[in-house]
């Protein structure tokens, strides 16, 4: 089956000479959720902006639903909804009007029943006649999503949908994304939270300095990259690791009283923490404290860039 979005060797050089994208190629399948992961300035937003028509590309080719985004932009854009990273809304406008405008811009006739459905789904119906400036930050983000959904897109771009959003809204957002996927919508979201990619994406693309470093199934990437460390503090100093604990990936900790356990945290796979702690007690060691730390995205990038350099 032809991919829903096909990006071929896209380059973008800004007027000031900055190479924001250095030959990006990417296929996105129909109905999948792809998370684009990358640090700030990696080119995530630039790539999305180019696909959606907000920016122009220096060279390359992009098609959405088989339509070239330059030559056949009307057909391509009709399929696309985009939720920008910044809260770009007219402060004096009212919620329902601005959502209506979005639908109209995409050439669809007014449909108040559908707009009501979208607003209700996003818990915005009570605020339908409120001015945007009177809404909270989370509500404004919902309005942006409502605008993007108002024209029934088949492809949805979410640029940092959960940046600066509280936990509850983040969960809501994930549910909305899953519902949309169930309705057959292809979703591309950018994030720099690895947990977010882990929670909802089918595949993860890692982008850094204008290049796609890898695109992989989420599970596979997490197995490869989602390492965790547990620092085990003990009551007494340990000079060497007891024989009984040899089967664990243990190393010396930051001080004499501690050990570090390295493991991989993947859904559906036991990390072996319970048995380790049991074995520690059995070996006659007394626990004082335990703390865990996930390898941060920065660590992953350092690893990936190093791998790529080899």
């Amino acid at each position: 089956m032809a991919p829903m979005i096909s990006v071929r060797d896209v380059r973008k050089t800004f007027d000031d000479g900055l190479d924001a994208l250095k030959g990006v190629s990417l296929d996105i399948e129909k109905g999948e959720i792809l998370a684009l992961l990358g640090p700030n300035g990696a080119g995530k937003t630039t790539l999305i902006s180019i696909i959606c028509g907000i920016s122009t590309m220096t060279s390359g080719q992009i098609s959405v639903g088989g339509h070239d985004v330059v030559n056949d932009y009307r057909a391509a854009r009709r399929l696309i909804g985009v939720v920008p990273q910044e809260i770009n809304l007219e402060p004096f406008e009212r919620v329902r009007n601005t959502v209506r405008l979005s639908r109209g811009l995409f050439g669809l006739p007014r449909n108040d029943a559908f707009i009501e459905e979208v607003l209700r789904k996003l818990s915005l119906w009570d605020k339908r006649d409120a001015q945007i400036l009177a809404l909270s930050g989370g509500m404004k983000r919902r309005v942006l999503i409502a605008k993007a959904l108002s024209h029934e897109p088949r492809v949805l771009f979410l640029d940092e949908p959960t940046a600066g959003v509280d936990v509850e809204l983040r969960k809501d957002m994930w549910q909305i994304v899953r519902d949309l996927q169930a309705a057959g919508v292809t979703i591309i979201l950018t994030t720099h939270y690895i947990e977010e990619a882990e929670a909802i994406a089918d595949r993860v693309g890692v982008i850094s300095k204008g290049e796609i470093l890898l695109v992989e199934k989420t599970g596979a990437l997490m197995r490869r990259m989602g390492r965790k460390e547990m620092i085990i503090e003990l009551q007494q100093p340990v000079s060497e690791i007891p024989e009984a604990l040899a089967k664990y990936d243990l190393g010396p900790g930051p001080d004499a009283n501690s050990l570090v356990y390295r493991y991989v945290s993947v859904p559906g796979q036991r990390p072996g923490i319970t048995s380790l702690l049991t074995d520690i007690s059995a070996a006659g060691l007394v626990l004082r404290d335990v703390q865990t730390r996930q390898s941060s995205l920065e660590d992953i990038f350092v690893d990936l860039v190093r791998e790529n350099a080899v």
Binding site: S49, C52, G53, I54, Y73, R74, A75, A76, R77, R78, I80, V82, P84, E86, N88, L89, E90, P91, S102, L105, F106, G107, K147
Partner: peptide
């Protein structure tokens, strides 16, 4: 100018309009 200033121009640019 206002859509440019507050950023809502993204929607005009991404819409299927000439």
């Amino acid at each position: 100018y206002f859509p440019k200033f507050i950023g809502t121009i993204y929607e005009l640019l991404s819409a299927p309009i000439s």
